[in-house]
Design a binder for these strands. Structure first.
Lengths: 144, 144
DNA sequence: AATTATATAGGAATAGTTCCTATCTGACAA
DNA sequence: TTGTCAGATAGGAACTATTCCTATATAATT
């Protein structure tokens, strides 16, 4: 199996071209880093990891690149991240519809969703305080 | 029904005392504002609304007070808010376990949750891009 | 009314993110 | 190859959200 790594790199190159974005060395490095990452890293974490091996890589480039990847569908954003802290006056069980563009959140009720069970095998020592179905998308206003 | 409003205020007073927190005029005003709020306001939004009628109310007081309310259970936080933006390398359908203390997110798989249906009556013109069950609580590490 | 623990205002500090601009470079076509 | 140029980068400045600090004020209790 010769040339495994370099064939991997050219796969990435092809992938980027198909998506219509330029394949810079920075982008290749950032994509490799995040696609092998198990956690849910922030731009800062990725930047710190990479800037050790990749001198002169700016935080802004990492951040912009990650956002570009989200735009073309290589990554997603974790729900709610990057928004300001919001407070929830409604304490009854309910669910959220979230607009990923304007961060608007719409509450809705659903007896079916309320009834969702949480098997303890999911928890592993987690102390469960709440459960919620989060539907993400683009709201009517932002669709226009 | 005489004295409706003032009896409401003294209810609040009693409520605060039961929770073991001091009932200052600022706190009463903030609580009234947010508990009658339909949206999911940020500290800044509450501050802007109140500082019109309540001269000299500082942002820090509003923010601290809202966080205090969360601690005693008068409010909750919207999932993910206030945390940095995080990126999600895993594009397959999956679900989240979130620690509200350290913001750690643990992915988990569930065929049952994947199968959850979204009736169109929930959507009202929303363009749905993803659905996810979010379980919130305190992770094993933070429990200690 | 006096005491004390807690809350407040306002400014300073910190942190995360985005903007700006000069420079550089990958992709494409000749 | 090489030249062209749209798009990408670095680095610093600007902006925004949040927290910290400290002197003062005040609610709750005696």
């Amino acid at each position: 199996m010769p040339q495994r790594n370099s064939s991997r790199s050219s796969d990435y190159l092809q992938k980027f071209r198909n998506l219509g974005i330029k394949a810079t060395p920075q982008r290749l490095a950032i994509y490799k880093e995040i696609s092998t990452s198990l956690a849910h890293p922030s731009a800062d974490q990725i930047h710190r990891k990479l800037s050790k091996k990749f001198r002169g890589l700016s935080f802004d480039t990492v951040n912009r690149t990650l956002l570009t990847f989200v735009e073309v569908g290589l990554l997603q954003l974790v729900e709610g991240g990057g928004d300001v802290r919001r407070f929830e006056p409604q304490l009854e069980q309910h669910h959220h519809l979230r607009c990923i563009k304007c961060f608007r959140i719409i509450d809705f009720q659903s007896k079916d969703y309320d009834a969702i069970k949480v098997p303890s095998k999911y928890l592993h020592g987690f102390k469960l305080l709440g459960k919620k179905v989060v539907l993400e998308g683009i709201c009517q206003k932002c669709c226009k």
